[in-house]
Design a protein around this nucleic acid. Sequence first.
DNA 1: CTATAATGGTTGCAATTGTAACCAATTGCG
DNA 2: CGCAATTGGTTACAATTGCAACCATTATAG
Lengths: 161, 161
Amino acid sequence: MPPPPRLQLDRFVPYRLSVLSNLVSSAIAGAYAERFALTIPEWRVIAALGEQPGMSAADVAARTAMDKVAVSRAVAALLRARRIVRTQSRHDRRRSVLRLSRAGATLYAQVTPDVLEYETALLATLGRGERQALDRLLAKLTRRAHELSPCIIARLAPNAR
Amino acid sequence: MPPPPRLQLDRFVPYRLSVLSNLVSSAIAGAYAERFALTIPEWRVIAALGEQPGMSAADVAARTAMDKVAVSRAVAALLRARRIVRTQSRHDRRRSVLRLSRAGATLYAQVTPDVLEYETALLATLGRGERQALDRLLAKLTRRAHELSPCIIARLAPNAR
DNA sequence: CTATAATGGTTGCAATTGTAACCAATTGCG
DNA sequence: CGCAATTGGTTACAATTGCAACCATTATAG
């Protein structure tokens, strides 16, 4: 019997990705959570609508890779706080049409520079070539992960409904 | 007044990292969650102890970047399931000494090949140079994120206790 | 030596989250 | 048309999680 393949956490890419992503996300959350009483899902909705106003909740979910329940709850909280406004689509009365309110736009304008600044600081130690490599690697790996995830589930849990 | 800097989610590295990491983590969780009734924190503890037996709960927390409460709960569940065993340190009666049980070691040996295989598949589209670049970028960014996170908190919430 | 601080670990409680079920509106198809 | 299937969105409930407080043990300062 061959020796079992060895798993070393520090060299295991999924683990390293997770650590990095958590570090970065929590640092960024620090840039708005306390100051503006904004949760991570709420900020994601704000960011999506700031970039592209008029989307429905489903659009936001697709855009931000959030669960639709999470979007629904974040939207409810943002409506309560009057940070977004909601109207109904003319053509499909199920679809909502979401936009930042005046207050929401102000918030967006206040938070955006900080998170961009964080990104700049994070990437500051990388050279031009490294940044390009990072961009390319993120794109490739994300595409690959999308291709792979259904396969894994199918192979390992063939009887899942 | 200069135009506000624009935030585009698809080009925003922290956001892309988060999406990628979530995709990868949930794909991997699929490799053991259902088959072995193992949660993500439990698997992390198993992986840490499989790699380096005899660590205390605090060691595991440091090693896996998990919260100590999460480790405590995962350890409790694993003890209940007899997948690990716990003894006490001779020199410091607070510290536990954790090891995989026979069953835990078997589990580890069953899951490890699958997660390694997933990693291999994920990286399969990358060339040799790209893999080196990825390794280097993960290391650099993680180090940088560690440096940065206290600063951000200090700067943006100077009155945090 | 003693008081205080720090560390390892657990528990209680509240907040967050995920899953599934659900309602309403729309689409597709016989 | 009319009925099943789909889509947008919300809600209920359970499971997970995070925070703070806590106990026991060990280290440190005076």
